[in-house]
Simulated scan of single mutants.
Amino acid sequence: MPAPTNTLKQRFQAGDTTFGCWLSFAEAASTEVMGTAGFDWLVIDSEHAPNDIRSIRDQLMALQSSPSPAIVRVPVGEPWIIKQVLDVGAQSILVPMVESGEQAAQMVRACTYPPTGMRGVGATSTRSSRFSTIEDYLHTADDQIALILQVESRAGLAALDDILAVGGVDCVFIGPADLAADMGHRGNPGHPEVHGAIVDTLGRIAAAGKVPGILSLSDEVAESYVAAGARFVAVAIDVITLSKAAQATAKRWINPS
């Protein structure tokens, strides 16, 4: 039996445009609810949300029957955390703050087994192999891993060609908030200079044969990015979705005006 098919990677390869949501509660119950919403994918965030390896595992379990495939954003691009996240069952990894081709290549190696990579060969007792019930896991797992790298700084943009030249990278995702801050426009990712850099970068990613990714909570801005070539688009964050819905309901009934 081979490793499970990564349906997100399939959609990347098919050229589909997909829309997803960030998960920041770090709770299996809310993640299970979001898994019923109908998004194309969901990102379990451990860079800015209070996740650890156990809560990541529990959320992957909560999404086991969801049609929305899970992506795990690791807190930092280090092989040891990628190894743990893969072993608890993630098949799609998002790495923040990638700023060189060498770093991109290291992330590819971290996601693949020797002799081409450096992922530890310990799947026998892990959730990723369904505890040894997926007999061909070691021989088929590499092909089902989707690797998404975040470029979100001026250094990352400067190294973009080197990053895009690395084989094994499926998607390059632009982090608009960090990029805006690094460009001197903290808190204003919609600044014309930032927006122009993002649009240009999306085109370069697409031209290199990678999937261009971006996040925007504004429908209008998200649509402009899709028009510019984005095919992996985050359009919601669970915490903000709940907060806005709760505020709107409270205003409707408690303080209408």
Rank of each mutant, 00 (worst) to 15 (best):
V226K: 14
L217T: 12
S30W: 09
C111M: 06
A158S: 14
L94Y: 11
T249K: 12
A28S: 15
P176W: 08
L138C: 08
V95T: 07
M61H: 11
L8V: 07
S132V: 02
A37P: 02
A141Y: 05
D52T: 03
D40G: 02
K9N: 09
I134T: 13
M1D: 13
T241Y: 11
T201I: 09
Y137D: 04
V226C: 13
G175N: 02
L94Q: 14
N188T: 10
P96W: 04
S216Y: 05
T126V: 02
K83P: 02
G168Q: 07
G229A: 11
I145Q: 07
M1P: 13
A62P: 10
S153A: 10
A155V: 14
E102Q: 14
L63D: 03
T140A: 05
D238C: 11
T133M: 14
G120L: 03
N188S: 11
E32Q: 15
V151G: 11
I254M: 15
A177P: 00
Y113I: 03
I214N: 03
P50F: 09
V151M: 10
G184D: 11
G120H: 02
V235Q: 03
K83S: 13
D182G: 11
E102R: 12
A3D: 06
N6I: 12
Q64S: 15
E102F: 00
G213C: 04
K244Y: 04
Q247G: 13
S100F: 07
E223L: 13
T126N: 05
T36I: 00
